[in-house]
Design a protein around this nucleic acid. Structure first.
Lengths: 297, 297
DNA sequence: GTCAGGCTATCTCAAAAAAAGATAGTAACG
DNA sequence: CGTTACTATCTTTTTTTGAGATAGCCTGAC
């Protein structure tokens, strides 16, 4: 059974004429006859009544419903990829908690304005999990900290973050080693790339990895820092966005530890749906506006 | 886009291998490559990631959903016509009020037992309307009074009815012409074939068509007859089935007027769905049991 | 690092199928 | 009774498909 045959069948059923159907679909009458005959042979039933009026038989009418479902699905699939201008379908994005909270909202808003027919789904998690999701095909693209070493990725430096130490009291210098040793550190669950920065930081002060508490959400983590439970390390933008809600204080860290780039990663552009391609374009534009000196070079 | 290509695509997406997919669908690997390549060219997107692991890309995963819808619809359509043993789908029957009430129930019960997967829909109406429904393709078959003169019908004499005069008082002879003239006659709405029998009856007693009231349902009609509103003409079996509920009385009519055959009518058997073919078979069997003398001849 | 094994892309040829045109037969209409 | 419009059938040409053979590539093991 071929979709082409079903198209012709539907045209005959609707127009009541083989000739008209042939013209509508830019072919000749003999081909319409042949296609319908083949359909009838395959199904073992007469689908079109030719004697007198040309109209679908009972069996033909029964087939119409299924043919419509097949052709509708086909047309939707085609418009998914070949839809001119407007993308449609679904876009699944994986991003870190901090990126989702601070960086994504304006970009998603711009994207949704440009492509209102795309359903957007966000999955959050630490970098390592996001990479797994991408490899698994559970998301179409991810925002991760640091370059992905894996080949065959399309990478775009999306955001530059500056990590700061976050604590419950004002700081002008790094806490003493003694203080660091006795304090707890709060981080996202295993796989969070910021977590290794914490360990780097501790190591640079001659302190072995102390107690590290894992958190699932940014709010919970900041709440506990504010309550004096310990320190954490987060992008400056993220902290600033929440600073009015929590009594927290920050301290700048040395550049070698502080600077982290967030990359947009997906597979090769040839594998992108129009929805994803359009998102990458939106992102490129947003990045260009944020960092004009980079695009000028 | 061809369903065959989608089948191969789905097999590749599921098995992660061109070779395995080829074997599953009884073809060779080079054909799988060609079909998928053609799909990719048509949609302008890479659907399968070949480098390293063979797996669907984002675009491929998006297509999977639509491919499933198309293939499922296809398989269902095929099983509609080529389903071995069990028919499925829908059977739309048109029948007269009286036939539906008395004759159809046992046949439908037998049919449903034989073909539990078929949805049965009954439309009731007078003979003339039923013929229209059949011609319009709104039902698959009808039960009508009298042979359909139209050619190209498949006809089967289903039931022989004997019409009786129904009134509110016991009768031993035909009411007088005077009585008939002053009485009302109750019939189904325009198009009911029994209605012409009433007019025949009146004419044979030298009475021109008097007042005829139209009713939409059997119950309403019998209720009004019992209340002394007038006479009606109905199959004996129908009246007997309702006699315990209404105070009504019958009188046999001369055979020329009384005998009416109910025919099963549909288009040629080649146009039948398996559901309809099976119903015709059930009906033939039921008729053979009711009238063994006919099948013996 | 090299080699073997398994996998996919590509090329080629034969077979099959589809498209288009021409023609004949048939039903409807005036 | 002839005309017209329609579909079925036949034929030819073109396109597509299927299958085999081969080359190239990646992976994993030694």
């Amino acid at each position: 059974m071929q979709l082409k045959s079903l198209r012709l069948f539907m045209a005959v059923a609707e127009t009541g004429s083989f000739v008209t159907a042939a013209n509508q679909l830019h072919t000749v009458q003999s081909n319409v006859t042949a296609h319908i005959k083949k359909l009838e042979d395959e199904l073992g039933v007469q689908l079109i009544q030719r004697a007198g009026r040309v109209r679908p038989t009972s069996a033909g009418l029964a087939l119409v419903e299924y043919a419509e479902r097949m052709l509708t699905a086909h047309d939707e699939a085609v418009s998914l990829f070949r839809g001119q201008e407007k993308a449609c379908g679904r876009l699944r994005i994986g991003a870190m908690e901090t990126t989702t909270a601070v960086r994504l909202p304006p970009i998603l808003a711009a994207y949704h304005a440009a492509q209102p027919d795309v359903d957007i789904q966000i999955k959050t998690g630490p970098t390592a999990e996001l990479v797994e999701l991408l490899l698994d095909g559970q998301v179409d693209c991810v925002f991760v900290a640091g370059r992905l070493e894996h080949s065959r990725y399309h990478l775009l430096k999306a955001f530059s973050e500056q990590l700061v130490l976050v604590g419950s009291t004002p700081m002008t210098t790094m806490p003493s080693s003694q203080e660091l040793l006795t304090s707890a550190f709060l981080a996202f669950r295993q796989g969070c790339s910021y977590r290794q920065r914490i360990e780097l930081l501790l190591a640079s002060h001659g302190v072995n990895a102390g107690r590290i508490f894992e958190f699932g959400s940014l709010d919970a983590m900041l709440g506990c820092v504010a309550a004096g439970m310990g320190y954490t390390v987060l992008p400056r933008g993220t902290v600033e966005a929440h600073q009015h809600r929590f009594g927290i204080h920050t301290l700048e860290l040395p550049a070698s530890i502080a600077n982290v780039d967030t990359y947009f990663a997906a597979f090769e552009p040839e594998t992108w749906t129009p929805a994803l391609a359009s998102f990458a374009e939106t992102l490129r534009e947003a990045v260009a506006i944020d960092e004009p000196q980079l695009t000028a070079s």
